[in-house]
Design a protein around this nucleic acid. Structure first.
Lengths: 346, 346
DNA sequence: AGCGTTACTGACAACGGTTTCAGTTAGCCG
DNA sequence: CGGCTAACTGAAACCGTTGTCAGTAACGCT
């Protein structure tokens, strides 16, 4: 490895002078130094710079699953901000597991200047210890119990659940099922509460056998939908609390040859790139994804700015938006005889 | 920040002893040291360790677009390998631009022990300079002209193009269009060559107005499909050379109310999670994604293993597989009168 | 010429670990 | 109890860079 001393020796100056040249200060022998750098192919060691400065110019990002298009878009938003900055992103998957999350955080605090985290559960308080290491922490998508003093970029999950419920109510559905995500995550809990609560206020109860809890992964959406279909009286509408579970639900409905929205209406949370191209085009509650990443990274970089470090926690909450497509319709839109009779007899 | 010296002072030993304890050596006063570490909340500084050891335990990964489900899956595969290792992933997007790629590589070589790269073009030789910095380099998905001496995990793009062509030929198509990706990338060039070459051998020429070149992004698939539709004699089948352009093509065909596969058959490259759920379910040339990431990371880690560093470049080429679904059919399957007449009159 | 100012320079001490080297202590044996 | 070995220890050097400090040279001015 070629060091600053090698460059200094070749240019006939001291390493201090080379260092000054590198940092843009005026230096007498800049031609010789530049020549030496080029000839030797010198690059300053990031490790040595970090040790000296105490900064790594690295941001740790921990998400549950990078193959979830939502998180991929969020990360891309973050990346678009760091592009013009000297920062890079250290990426880790927690796989929706707080053990893995804890492991990874313990490692990250030693390596990064700040962390953006979508916590696997609301309950695990370990991430708060990150603060002990004086590493600024920003939450994205999900919050933590007791995390109010941290910056966060969230969406109005409760409102999103409400929008989904209101949409189904307006279509006249009364037998409505919910496939929620882990209830110990912010979005899992709040989307369900917004959805079920809104229905309840309108006099529509969601019985236990319709009130299912998955894990935000496609497989659970598939399985839980199958279990709904096996009920003596299946629902006429299903709300799936994220993109992957919606996909799972859609697959199950296809596999069981259920007509959507004729027999069952399906509404999801989070739009997909392929949303309009699906059979049928999906009705979803949408929210800004790329933008959430951008905002979270901006918040974190502001914390890292020595001029502007302190200050109260900024908690940004973005709005959701209903996108009506063709996967929802009034109950019994394309009646399948047996089932519709039951519906009407209620 | 609490250092090893603080721990040493509190435990009443020297920092050398603490260091030995941390590295698992036997030490007389281990209780006192462990206690001091716990009470002070000590974590070793990664920067100092890197400076001393010359290793960062970080792998740089550069992909054109993390929101492309293919690359997201590849990165997840890589991550699954590093999970059980002390390594972390530094992620960067090149956005299909070799300038951004060069910038990012110049920064990465200073920070990482090795790099996995899906180069933006075959022609830019800058990545080869990475070797100057003694940073092992593994190519994934795409290759580089003159990169034969580097490890690489690729797929048989030529064979994939051939499979697509043979499928369309077997259905009887003779007016066939190709929407290729950047021809200065390995997959862009080879998929087109495999596709067009196979057709030519069967006596089916692809005229210039059917032989289009996009940039692997959705928008180009959309635009180029529109341009095909505006021809006096549109093709009866279209091959789109990656997942995003296929989606763009599908959107364009929907927007123009073209019946698939009745009026036009569509075949893509790379399967999508939503592939079977689309209107219509897409016929695609598929390939292992997660596995490609796993293999690339394993190759790189083997290079980094001091016991097993040298050795010839390993070049892994995986096979593609045709998945027949409903977006392809014989020409004129659902004849639209005007067009089919032309087809037949040929 | 003598003085003060400005512009630049190199030696050196950090930053926080790890490793070597030269002890020192404890333990064992005769 | 003396001698020998094995087990552990601390001082110090080092990794590559940056910042401080004390100079030195060049220049302009009286």
């Amino acid at each position: 490895m070629v060091t600053i001393h090698d460059v200094a020796a070749r240019a006939g100056v001291s390493s201090a002078t080379v260092s000054r040249f590198l940092r843009g200060q005026r230096v007498r022998s800049y031609e010789a130094i530049q020549a030496a750098i080029d000839e030797l192919g010198y690059w300053p060691s990031a490790a040595a710079q970090s040790l000296k400065s105490g900064r790594t110019n690295t941001i740790g990002v921990v998400v549950p699953d990078i193959t979830n298009p939502y998180f991929a878009a969020v990360v891309k938003g973050m990346e678009s901000v760091t592009r013009t900055e000297p920062y890079r992103i250290l990426l880790a998957n927690s796989d929706e597991s707080s053990e893995q999350e804890d492991d990874v955080l313990a490692d990250l605090v030693r390596r990064v200047d700040g962390i953006i985290l979508a916590p696997a559960t609301e309950q695990d308080e370990t991430p708060l210890h990150v603060r002990d290491a004086d590493v600024p922490l920003v939450f994205v998508d999900r919050d933590l119990a007791g995390g109010e003093r941290f910056d966060a970029v969230l969406v109005d999950n409760d409102g999103g659940g409400r929008q989904a419920a209101e949409h189904l109510l307006s279509l006249g559905h009364t037998r409505v099922a919910a496939i929620s995500g882990n209830l110990d995550t912010t979005p899992g809990r709040l989307r369900r509460e917004g959805f079920v609560g809104t229905l309840a206020k309108a006099g529509v109860e969601v019985p236990p056998e319709y009130d299912l809890v998955g894990d935000f992964k496609e497989h659970s959406g598939y399985q839980l939908t199958l279990s709904l279909l096996s009920l003596p009286e299946p629902p006429t509408a299903v709300f799936a609390a994220n993109n992957l579970m919606t996909l799972g639900a859609l697959k199950a409905l296809h596999d069981m040859r259920i007509d959507i929205p004729g027999q069952i209406s399906l509404i999801g949370f989070d739009d997909l790139d392929t949303g309009p191209l699906l059979r049928p085009p999906l009705t979803v509650v949408d929210r800004p994804m790329f933008e959430q990443g951008v905002l979270a990274m901006r918040l974190l970089l502001r914390r890292l700015d020595p001029g502007d470090g302190g200050g109260l926690a900024s908690r940004v909450v973005l709005d959701t938006k209903l996108i009506e497509r063709a996967s929802t319709a009034p109950p019994g839109g394309h009646p399948s005889p047996a089932r519709t009779r039951k519906t009407r007899s209620r």
